[in-house]
């Protein structure tokens, strides 16, 4: 299994995709953090003020701005094998196909972790000087900072799992990437925006991620942080298991 994971890392690092998506994720996080900081304290901004733990958490939670890109990385990591037919030599080397999927889950969770660390550092680089300039003291907020950023890193790692799981289920690369983005940016926001659907909405990946970060939002009842993390992980694992059961075992020609 160690070798399989090593091989997956070699696959990941022998093309440039990881680098472009990492730059994209870092860029998005820097942008979101800047927006959160810039608009904090505006009269019509519902976010809590920056000098409260909740307000600080809202700014720091932009660490998850790259979740979609981590998920895309995982989806492509799985589906590019089908797209470029490298699935043939891959399954020839490892005929027990579920092991390939397991190795990819481990690899892309680890990659998500690395992305998360890069994003957390980005948030710090943007937020620390900005907050200092606004005379918001971070002394005494160390726990909130580290806790929120660590939660964000965990969320990104889990999104790596999610991507691989979704890619295993929908092996067509274009369909998987488009489907994922439509879900994250169209379906999910609609479902979470309707208050009546909150009992369902709180279990969606985005809400589960917010729960992990302990973000407060008026009128929304999130899960607890651990519940959120478990729900999110289950999404990845259940998708992967469904993928292995229904898609991955299909004939490869």
């Amino acid at each position: 299994m160690t070798r399989l994971v090593q091989a997956e890392f070699r696959k990941l690092f022998t093309t440039k995709l990881w680098l472009w998506l990492l730059l994209g994720a870092v860029g998005l996080v820097a942008l979101f953090a800047g927006l959160a900081l810039g608009f904090a304290g505006e009269p019509d901004n519902p976010s809590p003020p920056l000098d409260t733990p909740d307000g600080l958490r809202t700014v720091l939670s932009t660490v998850t701005g790259g979740t979609a890109l981590v998920a895309v990385l995982g989806v492509i990591g799985m589906t590019s094998e089908y797209r470029h037919l490298t699935i043939t030599p891959t399954f020839l080397a490892t005929p027990r196909r579920e092991r390939v999927v397991a190795a990819k889950l481990v690899t892309y969770a680890a990659a998500g972790l690395v992305y998360g660390i890069a994003c957390a550092l980005t948030v710090l680089v943007v937020a620390v000087p900005w907050l200092a300039a606004k005379d918001v003291s971070l002394s005494g907020a160390g726990g909130t900072v580290i806790g929120t950023l660590a939660a964000g890193v965990a969320v990104l790692a889990i999104y790596g799992l999610l991507g691989v799981g979704f890619g295993a289920l929908v092996r067509n690369q274009v369909a998987a990437v488009v489907g994922l983005l439509v879900f994250l940016f169209v379906v999910q926001p609609i479902l979470t925006a309707i208050p009546a659907l909150n009992p369902v909405g709180r279990f969606l990946p985005g809400s589960a991620a917010s729960a992990v970060l302990q973000v407060r939002q008026a009128g929304v009842d999130f899960l607890g942080p651990w519940q959120g993390a478990i729900v999110l992980t289950l999404y990845g694992l259940v998708l992967a298991v469904l993928g292995v059961a229904f898609t991955v075992r299909r004939d490869v020609t």
């Binding site: 070798r3 091989a7 070699r10 022998t14 093309t15 590019s80 490298t86």
Partner: peptide
């Protein structure tokens, strides 16, 4: 056609060498 077009020939072999050590 079983190759990732952006991966070099040497890297392709390296990937499958790694799987089996």
């Amino acid at each position: 056609a079983s190759f990732h077009p952006a991966r070099s020939g040497r890297d392709h072999l390296a990937v499958y060498s790694t799987v089996n050590g």
